[in-house]
């Protein structure tokens, strides 16, 4: 069985600044939901860009499903940070979701019936099909986020990558988002990065800390020293916002 993600000793730098230092990560099926937390500027978006093949590390190797990222594009769904969009853009929900089919449709071809079916299914999964003719700016923040997830799902991914999916959402909408991810993780591996510690909810199966280095122990608990290394401050200061079970499990059976 091929590993979903296999990252070995990956280094990335911009100019003289090292952004990622000797990052290693292995995810096997079933991978569930991996949450990656870390401060702003800690290299989270860079890490995702490496996974997407948008950025080449100067050292180390990245493999998704046994292939380099550029060769596995039809297996990867991507939900970018949504604050960088122009919501006035003249595009409908339906057109947005169809762009998630481009890796299947091919260059210069019209979207096929299969593409349309996949887009419809993706929109139904996130319960947004009835809004398909709306312009993207006429939706609420939470609805928009679901449309971008639908666009990623239209690819029929085996791996879903989300960049700060919870930013700009109120607690209720965040909860809905996590429940959606909880459903999706049964069919695909999900990796979510966030700077918001409180976002690490009960739905996360594994957790990693990223601040230049990646601290990962293949579990849903973070040793306190990892958190301290990641945030470079006494952990008491930030532990208030963290649900208890991230730090330690209270029941004794495990």
């Amino acid at each position: 069985m091929e590993k979903v993600v296999e990252i070995k000793d990956v280094w990335v730098r911009y100019g003289n600044q090292v952004i990622l230092e000797s990052v290693n990560l292995e995810l096997a099926e079933p991978a569930g939901l991996l949450g990656i937390i870390g401060p702003n500027g800690g290299g989270k978006t860079t890490f995702l860009k490496v996974l997407l093949g948008l950025l080449k590390p100067y050292r180390g190797s990245v493999k998704l499903f046994g292939k380099p990222p550029e060769k596995s594009r039809d297996l990867v769904g991507y939900v970018p940070q949504y604050k960088r969009f122009d919501f006035d853009f003249p595009i409908s929900v339906w057109e947005v979701v169809l762009t998630g089919r481009m890796s299947h449709t091919g260059f210069l071809k019209k979207y096929s019936e299969e593409d349309k079916k996949a887009a419809e299914e993706a929109l139904k999964t996130v319960e947004m099909f009835q809004y398909k003719d709306r312009q993207i700016g006429q939706l609420s923040g939470g609805q928009r986020q679901r449309v971008f997830i639908a666009r990623a799902l239209a690819t029929n991914p085996k791996l879903l990558l989300l960049d700060e999916p919870n930013s700009g959402l109120d607690p209720h909408m965040q909860d809905e988002l996590y429940r959606l991810l909880d459903r999706l993780k049964k069919d695909m591996a999900v990796i979510m990065v966030t700077h918001d510690l409180s976002a690490v909810s009960v739905y996360v199966d594994r957790i990693a800390c990223l601040n230049r280095k990646l601290h990962y122990h293949n579990s849903r608990e973070i040793p306190v020293e990892d958190l301290e290394a990641t945030y470079q401050c006494p952990v008491e200061l930030i532990a208030h916002g963290v649900p208890h079970r991230v730090l330690e499990r209270h029941n004794g059976n495990s």
Partner: peptide, 22 residues
């Protein structure tokens, strides 16, 4: 006419379109 779908995707979200292999 030929590149309508590609141009629309490019203008809306260049990064995502790259990830789609375009």
């Amino acid at each position: 006419y030929l590149f309508y779908k590609e141009f629309l995707a490019l203008c809306f979200d260049e990064e995502f379109t790259t990830v789609q292999g375009v």
